[in-house]
Nucleic acid binder design. Structure first.
Lengths: 341, 341
DNA sequence: TTGTACGCGTTATCAA
DNA sequence: TTGATAACGCGTACAA
């Protein structure tokens, strides 16, 4: 049964409880809220009445007084996507532990739809807004709004806004340092769609760390797409131009999967001959790879949690500005390790 | 800037608008709501005052009157997962087009957390609840609640509840009929984790359709896990026991990816020698496969949309009972096609 | 055509 | 210790 058989059309109110307990609404309210100005026996009566009626206080009415709704609005642009979801999880996590609830809207990359949802959320008197992008590149600011706004995953172009992002350059550095530690020196870089800042950042991180170690990567960074197909193609190119390659740093797990396939079919052993790394730590791809893929975990849940924490701070009046960068970490698996000659 | 520089602590109210326009709140209300009992010139003044103050009506206060909150609660058990997300999208889609908003909670498969969230949502006076499961098997009912409840993806065990699920048996049938139409007769079934009803349903659908055509599948249904690893193992078994196999129907795209890898490495051509099908139509896996994978699309967005539609109906008083089954469809790609001898 | 007054469910203040 | 009353922001009968 989804609804009570003789369910009253109206929900149980504090007045109902008070009536049953034979007290005023004021006394009932105090009893339920643990105020000290009420006799123990009276409180008992009220509590049991509330229990009996399955009373649950109307949070909306309560917030009408306080001026705060206890909700935040979460506008995502990529409900289907792999990256906004963990961010959303982290935010829901941070909110769910407290008394705030999350109103979810999907804007699907459409600025108009976003604007519509923001207005609707403001009408619901959300205490703050969190905007989760579909891709990590900076996006236009929403401008001035009556409540605090935090941008997660995709930062705002306006440095006066609050943003939380993952550290793509660090991811590249971690990969390069790990490969160097594995004794690799002939390292090729295959990254993704050049229209993504993340593709450049990750490649730049690799280069920077190699540079620090005095190692020159094999050829230019190879830009393409975030696909297995591109990984297969790029790996064939690398093998052709640099047959003595001993490591390929990939800009995503998808790409790395394609690279692994081409290497295997070319008879190269991984990791004995060539080490391979991915980025994203998308377990569904990384764990099923042969061998399991060493990858960079962006800590997207943490991005969401931090964004929510910043938002709550701002709601409390302790707002900040600027972009906060969440560090990532390397997850070593079977696709990297010492060389074997 | 995330907040207006001199932003008032309090949001703009109808009283503010009325004051600026030099009318009463009642007149302001009527003007803004398009009531006819107001002079055109007065309405103009009110509208421009509202515009000037960027007034946005407090929906919570409005709903305090009407008794409905204009929100539904969405409790998901698998925010990370692949299957609940499209369902959630469909629900958000159906709600977003109207005036209802979605309060999202993640219960992570924990019944206690679910109970907690349900209570919190009831306190927010949601007009209805939607429960999205993590796996398609029937789950315990929440029992009697003061608002309608719809279970999506994972149905309720109580037939008196409203549930919406995908048709796994049909998926199996579609696969078998397609393989038969491609001229395949020596068909093996590899499905997933036997603790999932879906694993049995999909296999049963294949068997039923083959049976209708008088074709006997190769050996028993092979249960294992929803992984590429199992797909690779199972394919090796099939090749060993039935070297003349000409089609393998897989219970998921993950499994099919593993099957494809083993076939390729065994020198079997797909689809010329062996046709392969998946289930889920997870594009990130299906499109990158070599060749691209024929798969069953469960229409999960439609599951979510239907669930939301049923919920809205129930909120309007037109509630139903029972489980609604959303049909799936086959998406033919390169991994199936006519045989070549 | 406009304004006054009440109610929605709750909390807080103040008087009893 | 308890209760009456005034908010909160809005819509709507009803009175002016």
């Amino acid at each position: 049964m989804t609804t009570a058989p003789g369910a009253p059309r109206r929900a149980v109110t504090l007045a109902d409880v008070a009536r049953l307990a034979g007290v005023s609404v004021a006394t009932a309210s105090k009893s339920l809220n643990g105020r000290q100005q009420v006799r123990a026996e009276t409180r008992e009566r009220v509590l049991s009445a509330a229990e009996q009626l399955q009373f649950s206080p109307n949070v909306l009415a309560r917030h009408l007084l306080s001026g705060r709704s206890g909700t935040i609005g979460l506008v995502t642009h990529d409900l289907e996507g792999r990256f906004s979801i963990p961010t959303l999880m982290g935010a829901e996590d941070a909110a769910g532990t407290g008394k705030t609830s999350v109103l979810l809207c999907d804007a699907r990359g459409d600025a108009l739809r976003e604007q519509y949802h923001v207005q609707a959320l403001l009408g619901r008197r959300v205490d703050g807004l969190m905007i989760v992008g579909a891709r990590p590149d900076p996006r236009p600011s929403l401008g001035t709004l009556p409540v605090p706004v935090v941008y997660a995953y995709a930062p705002s172009q306006d440095p006066a806004d609050m943003s939380v992002v993952s550290d793509n350059v660090l991811g590249g550095r971690l990969v390069a340092e790990h490969l160097l530690a594995c004794g690799r020196r002939r390292i090729a870089v295959v990254t993704g769609d050049p229209s993504y800042g993340a593709a450049h950042d990750r490649a730049a991180g690799v280069r920077a760390a190699l540079d620090d170690a005095g190692v020159t990567p094999l050829g230019e960074d190879r830009y393409g797409a975030w696909t297995e197909e591109w990984g297969r193609t790029a790996a064939a190119l690398v093998l052709d131009q640099h047959p003595d390659v001993d490591a390929i740093a990939c800009g995503s797990d998808h790409i790395a999967r394609g690279v692994l396939d081409t290497l295997r079919e070319a008879g190269r052993r991984v990791p004995e001959d060539v080490a391979v790394t991915g980025h994203d730590n998308w377990e569904t791809l990384a764990l099923s790879a042969r061998p399991p893929l060493t990858s960079v975990d962006m800590h997207l849940e943490e991005v969401g949690r931090r964004a929510a924490a910043l938002l709550f701070d701002a709601i409390e009046g302790r707002g900040r500005s600027g972009t906060e960068v969440v560090p990532c970490r390397l997850v070593p698996r079977g696709s990297t390790g010492p060389r074997a000659t």
